[in-house]
């Protein structure tokens, strides 16, 4: 019994499939079959029914057609058709190991943004004269490749997740954890920790709920505390 259940999924051997030939005039075969199978009252309408054309059957979907792009910036809808909007795990098989060089690059970048002296004198409370300045720089920085972990959230199942950011949009972070699974995290309900070598930066996700491109020119307002 066990052997037969295994062989269900395997392909039939060539010796059997050789003999099978598909019916050549399938339409003829279908009408014959229907004539025999249906009750005699319905047989007259067979020809009419078969002539009906299914409108949606002929309609080819535009979405999957791979067409040449004109030399213009893709719209968001076109990007979606090409599958360039969402970084997902199933299709591209992203590995945590592949992201480590990205994280390294990000650390170098952050060091450049914050200046070489940053590691020595970190502003620890709002009274520090550098506090405003550093906040301003942090909000303008890029977070792709950052290593974050979540410390507080409205939804308890989000707490404790950690990973490297692969995508940063207006309302979500997509992070890739150590188990190679990409998770989507809503920004506005969480408190995050960002790991910069041995420094932990804690911030509200709601402060970052702007498009990453628009954050470059956005002014950051200090001292807002959100209800979580």
């Amino acid at each position: 019994m066990a052997q037969t259940s295994q062989s269900i999924c395997s392909i039939l051997p060539k010796s059997i499939t050789k003999q099978i030939n598909t019916c050549e005039n399938s339409e003829q075969y279908i009408t014959n079959f229907l004539q025999n199978a249906l009750p005699p009252t319905d047989t007259s309408s067979i020809a009419n029914e078969l002539r009906k054309s299914l409108i949606l059957g002929k309609h080819k979907s535009k979405w999957n057609k791979k067409k040449q792009c004109k030399g213009k910036l893709l719209t968001n809808r076109k990007r979606m058709q090409l599958g360039l909007r969402k970084i997902s795990c199933q299709v591209n098989d992203m590995k945590y190991k592949d992201l480590l060089p990205l994280n390294q690059l990000w650390l170098n970048y952050m060091q450049q943004v914050l200046g070489p002296k940053f590691l020595d004198n970190i502003p620890k409370d709002p009274t520090d004269p550098n506090w405003e300045n550093v906040n301003q720089q942090l909000i303008k920085a890029d977070f792709h490749g950052a290593e974050i972990s979540i410390v507080g959230a409205k939804c308890p199942s989000l707490i404790g997740l950690s990973g490297i950011v692969v995508q940063d949009t207006k309302n979500i972070f997509r992070i890739c954890g150590k188990d190679n699974i990409i998770r989507t995290i809503p920004k506005d309900v969480v408190i995050m920790n960002m790991h910069l070598k041995n420094i932990k930066l804690e911030f509200f996700g709601k402060d970052l709920s702007i498009k990453p491109t628009e954050r470059t020119i956005k002014k950051f307002k200090c001292g807002r505390i959100y209800e979580l």
Partner: peptide, 12 residues
């Protein structure tokens, strides 16, 4: 490694 990510970063 991941063309979607590469395209996304370019777009940003």
């Amino acid at each position: 490694k991941n063309r979607v990510a590469a395209s996304y970063y370019g777009n940003v």
